[in-house]
Design a protein around this nucleic acid. Structure first.
Lengths: 246, 246
DNA sequence: CGTCCCTTTGAAATCCATCAACGCAGGTGG
DNA sequence: CCACCTGCGTTGATGGATTTCAAAGGGACG
């Protein structure tokens, strides 16, 4: 549970008792292969899932068979924390790459927050940041076209990985296939590929072998109209975000 | 604070002490005219806002000057509850029609949830339903075209108003202008108007004078692929939702 | 060496945006 | 009372962005 502790403490300082309570959470660790469902739409999960390693994603299909990927999750994320108080899954959750996941019973989580305002605030806040990311995605899908959407996704996934130490200098893993990235930004795989081609020819990024390298951060930020405020990093982190964009 | 109490009790039964605490919340009531900003992007609000009457909305502009409306809020909604734990506004909040709003200091809200797991759960859950609505909007913007998006918005706003007793039999207020509805579903006002024309000619709805009337609920639900699960009504309400769709 | 998945490219069709214009109702001031 | 203005809704014509359909290349892996 150390990753969970790290996540919580990145937002709010916990006292010793709180720290002990988090570390004492019952949990089971599970390795899952790539593209394995963890919870599917309609289910009533009894556990929260914490990503320790690898990428996961939340998705749904329209009746016409088109997939929309609602979000990607990386190490440290708790993709289904919301189901602590929302009994039924409204979409499906699955691994993307091979993953190491920790499962914590809902009961234990609910007991953890009662009487511990600091832990409650940190967890509640986590679900609120999640919602903020969704709002930004709505902006992107509603009002930007393919090139801007693509650039925005790259900026976001780079910054999120920066924040948890998974990115090197202007380079980070990006394991989803083009078809998956396309389903996240709401275009076809064919058209996503064309946008990618444009970004490459403009020398803003390279993307190969699941590794994204940003060659022109300012240019990418500009064409995405990317403003990291919506990620709600805490003060320290926000400053480092500024530094990157400067 | 009776509307807030009603809202909370629609989700979770509160005991007498909790009920008294909610009713004792300090607050100020304010009337605002149509299209009046309540909080703008970048601000650090010190109050939560509860809509008592009228419509409000959350919006942002791209640098090109295109507006995206992220959500509409109706009586009983708490549009900025999230800022209890997310200090800075990531978008702007404004009235749409003339509104009656109640403002409750953040401090009082935070004090309310500490030691009252029932109230905390109800409020947290409210922010989670909000996020679920955002997810559904992402599905709609990413994978449905104009006609489906329009139908989906109509279904959603009708059901949400049903849930709080603001809708008559298959008819409800819909005060936003076509330009505002268009900015919510991510198309131009011109194109929204054309979709509307199609829906009217198919005899699925009528819309005039800010009043929406659904003439073919099943048809509208089908073309929107609307499934109210994402609204996470509680059991009783969910059943009434089923009844409507039957 | 072949197969499968992923990526890439081309051409045609469709959806939607853009530009332009008009009608209509309500309000306002002369 | 009427002329004028403004905001909102509506329609037509054109161009651009994206989808769809189709096909081919490349790399990993059995």
């Amino acid at each position: 549970m150390t990753p969970l502790l790290r996540k919580l403490e990145s937002v709010i300082r916990l006292d010793d008792e709180e720290r002990r309570a988090v570390l004492a959470l019952p949990h089971t660790i599970r390795q899952v292969g790539p593209h394995t469902d963890v919870a599917t739409v309609g289910e009533r999960p009894a556990h929260c899932c914490l990503v320790l390693e690898g990428w996961a994603h939340r998705y749904a299909y329209t009746s016409a068979g088109d997939r929309q990927i609602l979000s990607f999750y990386i190490a440290g994320d708790i993709p289904d924390l919301q189901h602590l108080y929302l009994p039924v899954m409204d979409h499906s959750l699955a691994s993307l790459t091979a993953c190491t996941l920790a499962f914590i019973p809902h009961e234990a989580m609910r007991a953890l927050v009662v009487g511990r305002p600091g832990v409650m605030a940190a967890l509640w806040r986590d679900t609120l940041v999640d919602a903020s990311v969704y709002r930004e995605r709505i902006m992107t899908l509603g009002r930007r076209q393919s090139l801007g959407r693509t650039a925005h996704l790259f900026c976001e996934m780079y910054m999120r990985q920066c924040a948890v130490g998974l990115a090197d200098d202007l380079s980070c893993p990006l394991p989803p296939t083009q078809a998956e990235l396309a389903d996240a930004v709401g275009v076809t795989a064919v058209h996503f590929n064309r946008s990618l081609r444009t970004l490459r020819s403009q020398r803003r990024i390279t993307l190969q072998g699941g590794q994204l390298t940003i060659r022109d951060w300012m240019g990418l930020v500009a064409m995405a109209e990317f403003d990291p405020v919506y990620l709600h990093f805490n003060e320290d982190r926000h400053q480092s975000a500024e530094k990157v964009s400067a």
